[in-house]
Computed example of a mutant assay.
Amino acid sequence: MDDALFHSNNNSFINISDKIGINDTLNFISETLELPCEEAYPSTILGATKSGISLFQLTLSYNKFLTQNIDSDKKELMKVLNKIFRNKLNIDIENAFLKTGTTNNNEERLAIIHHADTTYGFLRNENPKNDNSKEGNIFKHIKRAFYSMINPPKEYKWI
């Protein structure tokens, strides 16, 4: 499962949802995203919803999930998400998490980063020509933004 999450292997998530039970999985997703149950379809397991999910809604859902009711299963998940953060951003920070995704036709790339009690959502609305990779160059922009948040300039000048 760790490897499937690291590589965003959607087939694994569908298979696991089937083993857990599709209805139980959809109820969990519906509760987590605060969607009406009737708007949760099997395609919701991979992120598709009837009315869509905003980046804000997704970021807020990750924040709630990663900060409330931490149990051993969530701790294991957090270890995997920290491994993804370290490997994909090449930044060694404890308790920092990363989950990436793409929208239809690989046109937009998104990343959710969580550190301490703060969760950030990044969206890149650009797909350079012939770039069919899942992440494209979004990490370069995220890394720059993340470093500026955790290491603000030490010299402040007031004008």
Rank of each mutant, 00 (worst) to 15 (best):
T102S: 09
I142S: 00
N63Y: 01
T44R: 02
A145I: 06
D2K: 10
K83D: 14
D24A: 07
E39T: 14
L81A: 01
Q57Y: 08
H114F: 03
L35T: 05
I53M: 11
D18W: 11
A40S: 14
K64V: 08
L123H: 10
K88V: 08
I70E: 07
I14L: 06
N82Y: 04
R144S: 12
N151V: 04
R109M: 06
T32F: 07
Y120W: 14
H141N: 07
S148L: 08
K157Y: 15
T102F: 07
N105Y: 14
C37G: 13
N95V: 04
E155C: 01
I142G: 00
G47I: 05
Y62N: 00
W158E: 09
L55D: 06
S61C: 04
T25D: 05
N90W: 08
I93S: 07
T119I: 11
S72R: 07
I20S: 05
F139M: 02
I113E: 03
F122I: 11
G101E: 12
K83S: 03
S54E: 14
E38H: 12
T103D: 11
G21E: 08
L46V: 13
R144Y: 15
N63K: 05
N23M: 10
T118K: 05
D71P: 02
K88T: 06
M149C: 06
I138F: 02
E155K: 06
T44S: 12
P153M: 05
S43W: 14
E31W: 05
K129N: 14
I20D: 12
L60F: 10
F85C: 01
I20R: 06
N132D: 12
W158V: 13
E108Q: 10
T49M: 02
H141Y: 15
I16H: 03
I29E: 07
F85I: 03
A40L: 11
N132Y: 15
R109D: 12
G47E: 04
I29R: 00
L55H: 06
F65Q: 01
L98N: 02
I150S: 01
L33T: 02
T102N: 10
I29F: 06
V80H: 03
F85T: 00
D3V: 15
P36N: 11
A116H: 12
Y120E: 10
N11K: 15
S54G: 03
G121N: 09
T67H: 03
A111T: 06
L58T: 13
T59E: 00
I22L: 07
L98G: 00
S51I: 13
P152S: 00
I20W: 13
M78L: 05
S30C: 03
I93T: 10
I45L: 04
S148E: 11
N63G: 01
Y120L: 12
N63L: 02
